[in-house]
């Protein structure tokens, strides 16, 4: 039965010519974030040659890992048309529970690897559950993601404050010694957090671009109805994006806890906005349907780099970090939108 339609093409003029539209605008869309990062790095070198120092670069990448890992999860959520505002509070909550758990396990298992592994496992499980709750309430309750995650944000934030009794939860010193290398250690000259960041990014890239799950995220973010009529389990996929986000938050928390060895109500404040900013700078559309993992990685590094450069110069006060970040976010999005407009017919 494969012939009739083809038989009818008597006036098939220049059909099937798939000439790719070329032009600067396309390049800007794909490479924009990378170019911006390069420009920023160049600026850093000009301001202070110490910027290129191995210690400085390593330190900067390590710091960007937290936001970066969370932002990779956020890329999935946002691509599928959702939003998760609860990630910062979730990180604080997970950190708090993890510390309490490990402290109490010391009596039973001693300050050993078992304790740390159990803490890590609990953290991942908690992230998975928290994401599951966000996803289920959003999809089954048919409530906007903004509202649901605004709610859970408040809940997690107050829970960690309650657990810490308004103060700070501190990790047992003995455990901290064992756990320390997860943040401070390095392998082949690259710190562990950067390795984790890289691994999450690679897995995220494959997941988003080479699996059904990723393709479905694009479809759902573009048009949920079309996705439903394409036999996609929309609710299931959306919930999975929140669960993935939860796991990413847990991973970020796992490498964050040994850094300070403590958690409080002030942990992870505004991380959700930084993560969203990284995603947006990277070229993912806030309204969904289009996402890019490497863009997000670059976005996260850029945000940290701005602070780093301001630290290295006296020209602009360090207190203006937020101002510069804000300007960069707006300019980045403006450039992307301008190129969208050009490619539209």
């Amino acid at each position: 039965m494969s012939s009739v339609m083809a038989n009818n093409k008597t006036t098939n003029k220049a059909a099937n010519t798939t000439t790719r539209p070329k032009g600067f605008s396309i390049d800007l869309k794909t490479w924009g974030p990378f170019i911006a990062l390069l420009v920023l790095a160049l600026l850093g070198v000009l301001i202070n040659p110490a910027f290129l120092g191995l210690d400085n670069l390593s330190n900067m990448l390590t710091r960007s890992a937290f936001i970066g890992i969370i932002a990779i999860g956020a890329t999935f959520v946002i691509t599928a048309g959702g939003l998760d505002l609860s990630v910062g509070a979730m990180a604080a909550f997970i950190a708090g529970v993890m510390i309490i758990l490990m402290n109490s396990l010391v009596e039973q298992f001693g300050a050993g690897l078992t304790t740390v592994l159990l803490g890590v496992g609990a953290s991942l499980l908690l992230g998975l559950c928290a994401g599951f709750i966000n996803g289920m309430v959003t999809t089954k309750g048919k409530i906007e993601a903004f509202i649901v995650t605004l709610g859970t944000m408040g809940i997690y934030r107050s829970l960690v404050t309650y657990l810490a009794d308004g103060g700070t939860l501190t990790l047992d010193w003995a455990v901290r010694d064992i756990y320390r290398p997860v943040y401070y250690g390095s392998f082949l000259g690259i710190t562990i957090p950067v390795w984790v960041f890289l691994a999450v990014a690679v897995i995220g890239y494959i997941l988003l671009n080479y699996t059904r799950f990723g393709r479905y995220c694009f479809a759902i973010g573009s048009n949920e109805k079309v996705a439903e009529y394409s036999a996609i389990h929309v609710d299931r996929i959306k919930t999975m994006t929140y669960m993935l986000q939860g796991v990413c938050v847990a991973l970020a928390t796992i490498i964050y806890v040994p850094r300070l060895g403590s958690a409080s109500g002030a942990t992870g404040v505004l991380w959700e906005l930084e993560a969203i900013a990284a995603v947006i700078i990277g070229g993912t559309m806030l309204k969904g349907g289009h996402g890019r993992i490497w863009g997000t990685v670059v976005g996260a590094i850029m945000l940290t780099m701005i602070g780093n450069i301001l630290n290295l110069t006296d020209a602009i006060s360090n207190y203006l970090n937020g101002t510069v970040q804000g300007i960069i976010i707006i300019v980045a999005v403006y450039l992307q939108r301008a190129s969208w407009r050009k490619t539209a017919p």
Partner: peptide, 25 residues
Amino acid sequence: GKGLVLNMDLRSNVTLLNLRAHCHP
């Protein structure tokens, strides 16, 4: 409104319904 993902490329639209046939994994 329900049939095609308008801002997606043509190839992905065609394979969206039966994507699992092109996955391993």
